[in-house]
Design a protein around this nucleic acid. Structure first.
Lengths: 218, 218
DNA sequence: AGAATAGTGTCTATCAGACATTATTTG
DNA sequence: CAAATAATGTCTGATAGACACTATTCT
């Protein structure tokens, strides 16, 4: 019995990140069909290529958006999806030759809990919960590349903002950076950057006690 | 008459750069067959995907290497090819749905002249010779993305070294940087970086009068 | 009050940009 | 010698890291 033949030679996979509990999380789904049935993997699907000249099929970005929405149940935001690499090793899929274009998405922790309510979908700490050895296909490789890519962008405001609630404290944002980088970041340096972002208008202060109704719990 | 059907839904295109005459050049080839016959385009070809499960087909990187070698006549060096983006607009190829994975390559100016000896192959100044409006398919878009990608890497030693002859002067290297960035770069700052590279062992001084037999012509 | 977290002051080292100055080679 | 290019000196401003210090809020 050969595993089913791949429905399309082109696929899209998504590395969807968030930060909760000061920890970088990635969204994994349990595969409901072979190959690798019941294994965890990043959400992905074949790209509809049309029928070679008649139906146009879907754009790569549309496929990524579709998968983001079906796997999280959330509407996708413009700019949320970012293509980062194609993976084309010929043995990567036992069903046949499938090249996948991998995308990176960031989800606000505001929505993270409701995403995890779905069956067979959950957030995993990239540091110590991802079942690296048991990820389907070559998803361990893809996820590693995605994490690296995210880290390299962590100096960027927009990257961090996407990983934080709609209203947040400076500390929240810094905690997000630390979570992404997997190391503590210097308070002073971070606040300087933060102040610059505010003065550049990239961040607006929310009303209330300074940036947010943050307390200083014991 | 429909244009011929695309042989494969997946292709690879290469943006091959060099620097000659203090100017950033890209290698274009004249298309010998429809669509866009006789138009200039970046070298590229369909990826052999095998036959869905039996023959394995070629890796993405192998396809890129193959195209680099056939279009330049030069053997490819390890690390020379760098994948940077997939392009998947459904209308990008009139033959049907073709997604292309674009790669960036840098060629030493030592070899640039012999590359251009081939028929239907030539170097074009990115700044003022590329026939942007007449490039085949969506190659204008791909080339623009490649150029941007190259510029963002121009601070990196390896990127610059690949664009310069095997032995070179500091000025040569700085000229390469200026060509990539399309703006003059500060002498002092560049030399500081250069000295650091030397002390880090990334660059070895050639024998002879300092770095190279460079004179100071009038 | 004491613990915990939030935020500030300030010193230092590093580096880029600007620009003047000196050195070397060609004509 | 003059012109052109190569290389260096040096000032300034921006920024990151380190670390001590002050401020606020909770228990």
């Amino acid at each position: 019995m050969n595993p089913a033949v791949a429905p399309s030679p082109l696929a899209v996979d998504l590395a969807i990140f968030t930060v909760t509990e000061a920890d970088l999380k990635v969204l994994l789904v349990r595969r409901q069909a072979p190959p690798f049935k019941d294994a965890w993997s990043m959400p992905g699907d074949a790209v509809d290529l049309g029928d070679m000249g008649r139906r146009p099929g879907e754009h790569l970005g549309s496929a990524a958006r579709r998968i983001l929405e079906t796997s999280t149940g959330l509407p996708s935001q413009p700019g949320q999806l970012q293509q980062f690499q194609a993976f084309g090793r010929s043995e990567r899929d036992p069903r046949g030759r499938v090249v996948t274009v991998a995308w990176l998405a960031r989800v606000s922790p505001d929505f993270a809990p409701m995403v995890a309510l779905r069956r067979g979908v959950d957030w995993f700490s990239v540091n110590d919960e991802v079942p690296w050895m048991r990820l389907a296909l070559d998803h361990a490789e893809i996820l590693a590349a995605a994490t690296l890519h995210l880290q390299q962008q962590s100096a960027d405001t927009q990257t961090l903002l996407a990983l934080v609630p709609a209203t947040f404290t400076v500390s929240d944002l810094q905690a997000a950076e630390s979570a992404v980088l997997e190391r503590p970041s210097d308070t002073r340096a971070f606040r300087r950057r933060f102040d610059r972002w505010v003065s550049e208008g990239l961040i607006a202060r929310a009303p209330g006690k300074r940036h947010m109704g943050r307390a200083r719990p014991a």
